[in-house]
């Protein structure tokens, strides 16, 4: 079957030489970056980039718009902060605990929301995450408006001192790379192929015997867990967890980052997160109101380049003549 073999050589998402080279350059740049920029600034980008990648797993590859991802990001930050500060957990274990907590919340919220379509799904996730934000304000362990402050960074696996900015940076980078790889693997897996099929034609997938709600729920939980990984890491990096991270504005911000970079592209959310964080950082010292600018960017994205920066570039690169055979 010559045709099939030829297909396999061309189409399988094996990393092409170009993307391998570009990836290697990007990783080298990330390794060198803390010598040129503030590590805290970079770590903030990495945490939000991972958060956006996790969010993109859901909107870009399942087609579900969650307006409640802050619950997983901010929830995990609380869990990790509490586990490390109060229970004295080792930091990596604490981060994994936060991610597990986010996954459990993903299971509950996803279970309730997954049968809804489109805007109803977005509204239910928003409502449930706001409910969670309210709980966070009320329960004692989150310390209300103050949040959990002074979380010790501690020693990774009892060995590496994370109070050293560079050590903290490289650990964050490793977690980020792991998370991005996880998204890539999930999307390009047998499971990912079914997700793609469901997004393309849900009725057909059902008629082939797929219990599509379970696949969607599975993806939702994975997305929540990875968002939690980002949130837990952020709590260790910044040594606190507050209400800001569980509120709806945070859900909106991650939507913006993903939209700006390019929904459904592997590196779009990373680019989007980098730009938004850099802008916020830059404008923090000026008088210009950040929210206004974010709003303007949002409108421009929706009106002019819906595919996002990376999406538009990819589209320009692959444009080819169309025709049916």
């Amino acid at each position: 079957m010559a045709v099939g073999t030829q297909y396999l050589a061309e189409q399988q998402p094996k990393l092409s030489t170009t993307s391998l080279v570009l990836g290697a350059i990007a990783i080298a740049a990330l390794i060198a970056a803390p010598f040129f920029f503030y590590p805290v600034f970079l770590m903030s980008i990495l945490c939000f980039a991972l958060f956006a990648c996790a969010f993109n797993l859901l909107i870009g590859y399942v087609g579900l718009l969650s307006f409640g991802h802050a619950a997983f990001f901010g929830g995990a930050a609380y869990y990790t902060a509490h586990a490390v500060k109060v229970w004295g957990l080792e930091p990596l274990t604490g981060i994994l605990f936060g991610a597990a907590g986010a996954a459990a919340m993903g299971l509950i919220i996803g279970f309730i929301a997954i049968r809804r379509q489109g805007i109803y799904f977005a509204m239910i996730t928003l409502a449930l995450s706001q409910m969670f934000a309210f709980i966070c304000l009320q329960v004692p362990f989150t310390h209300g408006e103050d949040g959990i402050q002074g979380v010790p960074r501690g020693h990774l696996l009892g060995i590496i001192d994370l109070n050293q900015p560079l050590s903290m940076y490289y650990v964050t980078l490793a977690i980020f790379l792991f998370g991005v790889f996880a998204v890539w693997r999930i999307v390009n897996s047998p499971f990912g192929n079914i997700l793609k099929a469901i997004r393309e034609n849900e009725r057909r997938a059902v008629s082939l015997g797929y219990r599509v709600d379970r696949y969607k729920l599975g993806a939702f939980v994975m997305s929540a867990a990875l968002a939690g990984l980002a949130g837990g890491t952020k709590a260790i990096v910044f040594q606190f967890a507050t209400l800001t991270d569980v509120q709806w504005q945070m859900s909106g911000e991650v939507i913006l980052m993903t939209l700006l970079g390019g929904i459904g592209t592997m590196i779009g959310p990373i680019v989007g997160a980098g730009l938004v964080i850099a802008l916020q950082n830059y404008l923090a010292s000026s008088q210009f109101p950040v929210t206004v600018l974010i709003g303007i960017i949002f409108v421009i994205c929706v009106l002019l380049f819906r595919r996002g920066i990376v999406g538009e570039i990819l589209e320009l690169m692959k444009r080819k003549p169309k025709g049916n055979v």
Partner: peptide, 21 residues
């Protein structure tokens, strides 16, 4: 292949590479 994946129990593995199909 999408149709074959379910009967062949190769539909839920999110950790396997695409090439396993």
């Amino acid at each position: 292949r999408v149709a074959l994946q379910r009967p062949k129990n190769l539909a839920t593995q999110f950790w396997l590479p695409f090439s396993s199909l």
